[in-house]
Write a protein that binds this DNA or RNA. Structure first.
Lengths: 148, 148
DNA sequence: GATATTTATTTCAAGTATAAAGTTTCAGGC
DNA sequence: GCCTGAAACTTTATACTTGAAATAAATATC
């Protein structure tokens, strides 16, 4: 195979990529747990809902977050129990329901998001904005390559 | 806060990092499932054991892979059931046990690792070796920054 | 040598994840 | 009006994940 050596460099990169994201994820998860008694998946769901004030259907949510349908069911269920999120019927379609942040949910998410942003800023301090932007672009190339 | 705008760039990078690793992970997981009836965590464990022919203690394994102790127990358990892995007593310490690949496990892992490497090579095709190496280095900086 | 602490691992409870199967509803053709 | 197939979800089975509690063995302390 002609480009086997190239693949070695890519494999090393992949392992490093995994290591970095896992360690950052672990750090964020722990802080969410300690400071907000929450979890990353819940944060992700609330984040998606915060960006969509009109709410999202379950299938839209699972599509956006790229997690399975059945998974979203459970996460939303717990958010409902905590009063952060509400299910509303979709007029004209009794199969679907629209999920939306409650006022308390909005407020809680605003607090979490502010903290989250500064946590990430701190964890990625080693990169200046230019490097961050460049890396972002290369990651975009990977993403595009992949969805072909 | 003085560097709030910088944090925005870092936050964007973090979200992209998550997106890329998750989508690659999903792809690898699916291929492992279809072609080898296995999973990523199992592959990770076998990979660590392949690099340590003398075997590893459970705690060493969980330290290397950075997953919880309790987690490794279950994964190893299933690998034992499949005959890929064996537990051996550690002489002089009846608490510990050493986990090691069986001959079949070694053979199976060799097949999986070869495929895995070429899968990753394909998924990261968008980057040439130089870019891959540069990104690797920047990720190292993040990792170092973080563990302080 | 009894007691306390530490170390190695497992067990447990809760949450997250997937794929696959099941339920209900909708929309189109007939 | 009924049938068929697709769509929106939920349920189920299985696996992975964590943090914390439990167990058991080794080591340190007195």
């Amino acid at each position: 195979m002609r480009d086997e050596p190239d693949n070695k460099a890519r494999l090393r990169l992949w392992l490093k990529l995994l290591k970095v994201t896992r360690s950052i994820e672990a750090e964020l998860r722990e802080r969410l747990r300690i400071e907000f008694a929450s979890t990353l998946p819940r944060f992700d769901v609330m984040s998606a809902l915060a960006r969509n004030a009109d709410g999202l259907k379950m299938s839209e949510l699972s599509g956006l977050l790229k997690v399975s349908n059945g998974n979203v069911t459970g996460i939303v269920e717990r958010l409902v129990e905590d009063g952060h999120v509400r299910r509303e019927p979709v007029p004209g379609d009794r199969r679907a329901s629209r999920v939306r942040l409650t006022p308390q949910g909005e407020e809680e998410f605003a607090r979490q998001a502010a903290e989250h942003e500064s946590w990430v800023g701190g964890l990625l301090q080693a990169l200046d904005p230019h490097e961050a932007t460049e890396m972002n672009e290369r990651l975009n190339r990977i993403l595009r390559e992949e969805t072909r």
